[in-house]
Simulated assay, not measured.
Amino acid sequence: MKAGITAINHIMVYTGHWNKKEVFTASRWNDAHKGNYNLQMKRKNRGEIMNNRRLTAAEWRKENSRLYSNNRRLIDTVRAFGLRRSEACHVSQDKYSIMANSFVECNGRLYCFVPYGKGGRPRFATCRRDMEKEMRRLYQPRIVKSIPTEMEDIKAFRDTFMKKNRENFRKNNYVFDGKVSGDLRFHIQRQEYAQVRLAEEFHDKGQCNNKQKTINNITGNITAFKAVANDLGHGRIDVLGNYLGR
């Protein structure tokens, strides 16, 4: 919704229908419609939000040990790379999810290539170090010399990746399909991923340097926050506040 609002604002300002003070903001709409939220939000969505806030990922896995055990490969893959449900589980021919050769290794680090993340943007998600051994055992990654970092280069990588895997896509050779239990919780696994990866980045780059940022009461260097934001597929460090709390 925010992306759509931004596009409308750009069009209306550029064509002279609005000035910059008249642009529409999501927060202004939210303030005017707070009373409608509880009436219109589905119970399932409310329950999932509350459940995400009530439990950490580790607590969820303990409380739902049988569900976790039955879906361990999927959940652990999400935990290792911080994947969304739509990125891990194939549900649409227009949005390809991960497959067996989506996993690559470069200079000793393991990555998962996500061809279509949020907003259709591709990315390379870095594997948590504590789960690299398990992911190597599951996926036998391909060794590559370098990982592209600029979005233009990542999109070019995707174009080549799509051509090479055209037959796999046609045969639906994905790691997971979209038919998974609705009780699985993906967002709290991504929260855990963000927290673990940030600790890794602080360890590698140092928590304090000349460019500091405080997000959700955590202060550290901006470079580390940006690395984790890119791994999550947002690219914006302000979004990390949703992941760094309980």
Rank of each mutant, 00 (worst) to 15 (best):
Arg73Tyr: 08
Leu240Ala: 07
Tyr116Glu: 07
Gly47Tyr: 00
Ile11Asn: 08
Ala32Gln: 10
Thr214Ile: 14
Tyr243Phe: 14
Asn9Asp: 08
Lys2Cys: 12
Val13Gln: 09
Leu184Phe: 05
Trp29Asn: 12
Asn216Tyr: 10
Gly206Leu: 02
Glu200Val: 09
Gly178Ser: 01
Met131Gln: 11
Phe24Ser: 03
Asn9Gly: 07
Ser181Trp: 11
Arg66Lys: 15
Asp31Leu: 14
Arg46Gln: 14
Asn165Tyr: 03
Tyr116Trp: 00
Ser86Pro: 02
Asp153Asn: 12
Arg54Ala: 11
Pro122Gln: 12
Pro141Phe: 05
Lys42Gly: 12
Asn221Met: 00
Gly120His: 02
Ala7Asn: 13
Ser92Gly: 02
Arg142Glu: 04
Gly220Met: 07
Arg129Gly: 10
Glu22His: 06
Ile11Val: 01
Asn165Ile: 07
His17Thr: 15
Tyr14Gln: 13
Phe124Leu: 04
Asn64Arg: 12
Ser27Asn: 11
Asn210Ile: 10
Ala229Met: 03
His90Asp: 04
Ile237Val: 15
Ser146Gly: 11
Arg158Glu: 09
Met135Tyr: 08
Asn210Ser: 12
Asn221Phe: 01
Asp130Gln: 04
Asp238Pro: 11
Lys226Trp: 08
Met12Tyr: 11
Arg142Val: 00
Phe113Asp: 07
His90Thr: 01
Asn51Ile: 08
Lys211Asp: 15
